[in-house]
Design a protein around this nucleic acid. Sequence first.
DNA 1: GTCTATACTACGATAGAC
DNA 2: GTCTATCGTAGTATAGAC
Lengths: 211, 211
Amino acid sequence: MVQSRLLDIAISEFGSKGLEGASTRAIAAAAGTAMSSITYHYGGKDGLYLAAADRIAERMSAMMTEPFDVPAGVVEDAAAARTRIHRIFARLADKMASDENADWTLFVLREQMRPGAAFERIYGGVMGQMIETLADLVATATGCTNARVARITTITLMGQVLALRSSRATFLKLLGRDALGADDIHDIKARIDANIDAILDSMRAEEQGQA
Amino acid sequence: MVQSRLLDIAISEFGSKGLEGASTRAIAAAAGTAMSSITYHYGGKDGLYLAAADRIAERMSAMMTEPFDVPAGVVEDAAAARTRIHRIFARLADKMASDENADWTLFVLREQMRPGAAFERIYGGVMGQMIETLADLVATATGCTNARVARITTITLMGQVLALRSSRATFLKLLGRDALGADDIHDIKARIDANIDAILDSMRAEEQGQA
DNA sequence: GTCTATACTACGATAGAC
DNA sequence: GTCTATCGTAGTATAGAC
């Protein structure tokens, strides 16, 4: 289907070059069609960009719902919440590490740097709910009763994982690599897991100290 | 000086809109000069972009050398290293949080997403050495003898702080704000400090467990 | 050195054939 | 629906006056 191909290529081009950097001619050519079909299907470049954002929201949802799922019959105590947190971040780290997911993850990162209507759609669609759920899990896992603190912690936790994409170039330079290998990803994920536990433990200790 | 104004505005425009998104006409107009002076001074848009990168490297160096300084007469033991790590990240967090520094920090983030000659200059100029020093400090603070592990940890630590910029839009949505207030920044920095200690402690425990 | 003029290119939008 | 052809508009580059 032309529309589907068009969207995939749009996500890739917009992700790697940004809205202004990508050209509708190039996108159409790569999709094997004429530029005017972008006008026909999406009304223009901006419409294509928003449609790409919507598709990203769907993709994100599809990729993340499984680790977000609560296993049947599990009581959500602190330990269970922590397990889910690890599962979610492990999945996120895989997406941030793999080259296949570079396009849409970069698209989202670009939108964060200069948020527009596309960010509203992505965040409002699924991303916002996911992060809020994650913050709730952090609260449950640590016994933290202050939602604001739990949210701040959640973003610092996410930052570690997002660095796989947002600071990829630094990562590669520092490790002396051209690309992340399986062993690199393994070690990074192990470090992230250890960090999550260390941070959650320290928050838990803080909460108990206050009580 | 025209050149100085041109560079400042270039950093701001390239940072917020990217290389393709910014226009030399707009940059020149904002600097109160003709577009052709960009050609005269820098040879063109690309030259201006690289010059902006060089200026950013200088700025970065000026902003970060002080917290990197070793206080006179201090023996670099684990505790001293940890103190320096906190100082460095506190400074970095201030820069990532404040709106004044949005332009050049975004410039660097964009270059990380699509590294080119500009990234080489910034990383090769100062950034690389700073991060390597930071990784050495992490090694000293934790007793970690594996440089690779120390480097991976360093980037995850940095990721937390960089999230202030790279995930700013998410941060604001989650906190329900239009901009980060002084109280937000205070709480975030407190969390980052606590996380750093938690992570360094857990690494230290790992090292001692292995020994 | 700085400006104005102009040239050239690439882009996005649009109209119209099929 | 998809294509070709064309238009107008930005963008950068360049030449030349001062």
